[in-house]
């Protein structure tokens, strides 16, 4: 019997099911965040919906015990794969003191978790890229085998930091993998009003690195490209730019209405190509997933989300006086 696509990539049935579970967790957490927002319980949501395949496909091609991630605000799939928990994400959504990202100091989607090697990020886009390059330079100098994985939207690829960071990575052949999640909109501005080059991947050439465009709606396609990029990186062959073509199924954020700048047909068409649905179909075709197993998986995830929501909602907020902490090192502290 011919091997399936995932087997060709060296992925076991168990592994692809795990990938699917992570995609589904990201989606379901995101959907719950919207409900909580509309119920007036959390202030803001910025979605991963539609981009889970690219995020999870890429993350599973990395070494999740050693590699570093510098994610952007939509990357719930990436941070879940790197070890952030559902509870952590709800603590962030509710901006509670126990939130491991920032202790409730930043907006949701500003991921950062030292123990899981997720760099803390900022609000202006693309600032994470030079940070990731610095991490890669450190790894190269210390002769460590980790790679630095950084993601951003295609709109962010127009920032100066994109150019400055990737150029340095190219000059010094650093182990950096940059994945642009091209969902074709920078909030409301469509791709043809953002990017002058034919593709974002084309920009790799000017930084002395290969640029690949990949179907970001298929986690296996993304996995294959990132796996190859990681091999190049750890073999000292330098950085790679990957452009994953994705869809943004929701408005930019909970404060945006995307029907103001997108046709109904376009939105409907995207939903017909929902990456979660497509991967579920693939797994069922391959006999890896059954309807019953999927139902059980969803129930398990729902239970986890209910527990996390309840925990986070009841958790204490930071004390107002906590705002005075962590500006400078404490006397004698690190």
């Amino acid at each position: 019997m011919a091997k399936s696509r995932h087997q060709e990539l060296g992925l076991t049935d168990e592994k692809v099911l795990d990938m699917y579970r992570t995609m589904l967790r990201a989606r379901k957490i995101d959907e719950r965040m919207w409900l909580l927002n509309r119920a007036g319980k959390i202030p803001f949501v910025i979605s991963c919906q539609g981009q889970e395949a690219a995020q999870v496909g890429a993350a599973y091609a990395l070494n999740l015990e050693e590699d570093y991630a510098a994610p952007y605000y939509r990357d719930m799939g990436v941070v879940l794969a790197f070890g952030m928990t559902t509870r952590d994400l709800f603590l962030s959504g509710f901006a509670k003191a126990e939130d491991p990202n920032s202790g409730g100091r930043q907006m949701p989607g500003h991921f950062g978790q030292k123990k899981n090697r997720i760099l803390t990020g900022s609000s202006p886009v693309t600032t994470q890229l030079p940070h990731a390059v610095g991490v890669a330079l450190a790894g190269k100098m210390e002769k460590k085998d980790f790679v630095s994985f950084v993601t951003l939207g295609e709109g962010s690829s127009n920032q100066g930091d994109f150019h400055e960071g990737l150029n340095f990575a190219g000059v010094h052949k650093l182990p950096v993998i940059t994945m642009v999640e091209n969902n074709k909109y920078a909030i409301s501005v469509p791709l043809d009003r953002q990017v002058a080059s034919e593709t974002v991947a084309d920009r790799g050439k000017s930084y002395g690195m290969p640029g690949y465009q990949v179907n970001g709606n298929d986690p296996l396609d993304v996995f294959a490209v990132i796996k190859e990029a990681r091999e190049r990186a750890v073999n000292g062959e330098g950085p790679t730019l990957v452009e994953a073509i994705t869809n943004r199924l929701t408005a930019h954020s909970s404060d945006d209405d995307h029907t103001a700048y997108r046709d109904k047909e376009e939105i409907e068409e995207m939903k017909k190509n929902d990456c979660i649905m497509l991967f579920s179909e693939y797994l069922k075709e391959q006999g890896v997933l059954t309807d019953d197993a999927e139902t059980a998986m969803m129930k398990e995830i729902d239970d986890e989300i209910n527990d996390a929501t309840e925990y986070a909602e009841n958790a204490p907020y930071p004390e107002p006086t906590d705002a005075l902490k962590y500006v400078y090192a404490e006397e004698g502290g690190e």
């Binding site: 940070h131 390059v133 610095g134 330079l137 210390e142 630095s148 100066g160 930091d161 400055e164 960071g165």
Partner: peptide, 21 residues
């Protein structure tokens, strides 16, 4: 020597400092 890119120089410094440099 770095490329002529001030934002990149300081941004990269932030990344390096997270690794103990």
């Amino acid at each position: 020597d770095t490329p002529l890119a001030e934002s990149g120089i300081i941004g990269m410094s932030v990344g390096l400092s997270t690794q103990g440099f």
